[in-house]
């Protein structure tokens, strides 16, 4: 039944070695349009490293990354973003001194059709496009409930709002695949519940495929349709939340590492 949908991302035998240390080993995963897949595992299992390979921050030592029929392993991050993959960061990386609106507008820059000269000389064609961008940015902030904060400095926002802005900024690049790196980290149960419905709403509204790293099991079990588990750089299993919950290997990986 999965196979009717378009295959968005396929990771084949990804391996990356840092100075002799195998951080991710022979990792494979497939994502289909509309999926919301969770990637879990103990600290240091290599989850973020997988994200970094998909988004071009790291080049895999071996293996293939196919995005909508195109090989993207080793492309630079900005080109991968332009192709339609966006991400958030585990340790929030907003443009702290820029306003909330400007943070979102940065993401529109890649689709700007003006030369730097036309913006320098404030040509009418540039001013018109700037106006369109600002309207679009405000619209996006409005959808995500951040419009009232548009002129605030990003670094002055409370933590939960910063996480939300990270997602808004990623959405502004017009992705078809969104990678969320621990979006619920540091949130209280109330904020976490809001975040879960927020993610689901965003997925529907923007027609997204989502891959999500998360430590909070409630989030993963609550919204993911499928979950992949990593430990020591290797995928140990993959399946529905129920299957994962009862898998002895998963229990062992977690008991061995934390809680």
């Amino acid at each position: 039944m999965e196979k009717h949908r378009e295959r968005v991302l396929s990771l084949e035998n990804l391996t990356i070695i840092f100075g002799g240390l195998v951080a991710v080993n022979d990792f494979s995963l497939e994502l289909y349009a509309g999926d919301l897949v969770g990637l879990i595992g103990p600290n240091g299992a290599g989850k973020t490293t997988v994200f970094n390979m998909i988004c071009g921050q790291y080049r895999p030592t071996q293996g293939r990354i196919n995005f909508k029929g195109r090989e993207i392993a080793g492309l630079s991050p900005d080109r991968i973003t332009a192709l339609g993959i966006a991400r958030t960061f585990q340790n929030i990386r907003l443009f702290g001194n820029l306003s909330v609106l400007e943070n979102v507008l940065v993401s529109f820059h890649v689709s700007l059709n003006q030369s730097f000269l036309s913006s320098m000389f404030s040509l009418p064609s540039y001013l018109a496009e700037e106006k369109r961008m600002r309207e679009k940015g405000m619209q996006l902030l409005d959808t995500l409930g951040l419009a009232h904060l548009s002129q605030e400095e990003a670094q002055s926002l409370p933590y939960g709002q910063q996480r939300r802005l990270e997602i808004a900024r990623a959405l502004a690049t017009h992705p078809s695949l969104l990678l969320l790196d621990e979006p619920a980290a540091g949130m209280n149960p109330q904020e976490t519940r809001e975040l879960m419905s927020f993610i689901q709403r965003v997925q529907d509204d923007f027609d997204l495929t989502i891959l999500l790293i998360e430590h909070d099991m409630k989030v993963v079990m609550g919204i993911c349709e499928r979950v992949a588990v990593m430990d020591f750089g290797v995928k140990i299993t993959e399946g529905s939340p129920e299957e994962i919950r009862n898998n002895p290997k998963v229990i062992e990986a977690y008991l061995g590492a934390e809680d």
Binding site: C55, Q57, S76, P77, D78, T81, A82, A86, R87, F89, R93, L94, F95, V106, S107, H109, V110, R169, A170, A172, T173
Partner: peptide, 8 residues
């Protein structure tokens, strides 16, 4: 890092 990830 973030700027590059946003397509810059």
């Amino acid at each position: 890092v973030a700027a590059e990830a946003m397509g810059i």
